[in-house]
């Protein structure tokens, strides 16, 4: 098997490890068999459709408009996912849309504006997928963490509000903490590059027969874009969300899991 070609037989063989996961679930009575089968099936279908779509998109005769539309779809779907994961934040869909949109603009500005990658169908969609996909995870973490920290930290936030501090100052320690939590995994990932794990794009390129050094350069550029994208998404999401969690007269809104004493 040369240049990393995986045939349908190879794909079927890789399912052996899924069988192992199923066996573990059955043996330990985790009741995850259904989820495992559904996720594997769904992932398979989704990626095959994406593969077919990408084959059309990267065709030099296909208009770039379709690639841009695909990118818009990724941004919107990521915002919807973010909204579903942190429903306590009012208007999170629009905040996440702005955050993912800002990440796309900044990321593409650097990737294409500075000539790191050429603007082509084969670069637009995959880069958007990696950039927004990773940033979305950070955006979800920051929104979830913010709600949790404001709920658990209500006594401290209200103690600050009671001193006449505006919501921006009263929430600052909580926002900082949520941003640190959300960005830490990306920073750790970047630190561990090459030592603990070999990231996906690089591995894929090497498997496809590309020179390892070229693969490393591509991967590094992507990792830096992803790190910057995560920072952009988390900052916009955190600042947008925290604004929605305070009223105009500087009160913290009711939140789930709040432990407020009511006498």
């Amino acid at each position: 098997m040369q240049s990393g070609d995986v045939g349908y037989l190879g794909l079927a063989a890789s399912l052996v490890l899924v069988a192992v996961a199923l066996a573990v679930s059955l043996r330990l009575r985790l009741r995850l068999e259904r989820d495992l089968v559904v996720s594997v099936g769904r992932g398979l279908v989704q990626l095959l459709i994406v593969g077919a779509g990408l084959a059309i998109i990267i065709d030099p005769d296909t208009s770039l408009v379709w690639s841009w539309l695909w990118v818009v779809g990724i941004v919107v779907f990521a915002a919807a996912t973010n909204k579903r994961r942190a429903p306590a934040v009012p208007g999170l869909f629009w905040i996440a849309l702005a955050a993912n949109g800002a990440t796309a603009v900044v990321g593409f500005g650097v990737a294409f504006g500075l000539g790191i990658f050429p603007v082509e169908g084969r670069t637009l969609v995959p880069i958007a997928g990696m950039l927004i996909g990773n940033s979305m995870k950070s955006g979800i973490v920051v929104a979830e963490r913010l709600v949790e920290a404001l709920s658990d930290g209500r006594p401290e936030v209200e103690a600050r509000l009671a001193l006449g501090q505006p919501w921006t100052a009263a929430s600052r320690p909580v926002v900082r903490s949520a941003l640190r939590v959300a960005l830490s995994p990306q920073i750790e990932n970047t630190k561990a590059l090459g030592i603990v794990f070999l990231p996906g794009a690089m591995t894929g390129l090497i498997l496809a027969g590309v020179d390892p050094l070229d693969a490393v350069l591509v991967q590094l550029a992507l990792m830096y874009l992803i790190l910057g994208g995560a920072a952009t998404t988390t900052a916009v999401t955190a600042l947008g969300s925290v604004r929605r969690l305070f009223t105009d007269d500087h009160r913290l809104v009711a939140l789930p899991r709040s432990r407020r004493d009511v006498g």
Binding site: E156, E158, R160, L161, A162, L163, D249, H250, D261
Partner: peptide
């Protein structure tokens, strides 16, 4: 509601049930 809430809170201070230090 006619008062600026931040100014009001500086005039009407509050000590809470459990001490919250920063």
């Amino acid at each position: 509601t006619q008062r600026d809430s931040l100014q009001l809170r500086r005039e009407v201070a509050m000590v809470f049930q459990r001490p919250v230090t920063f």
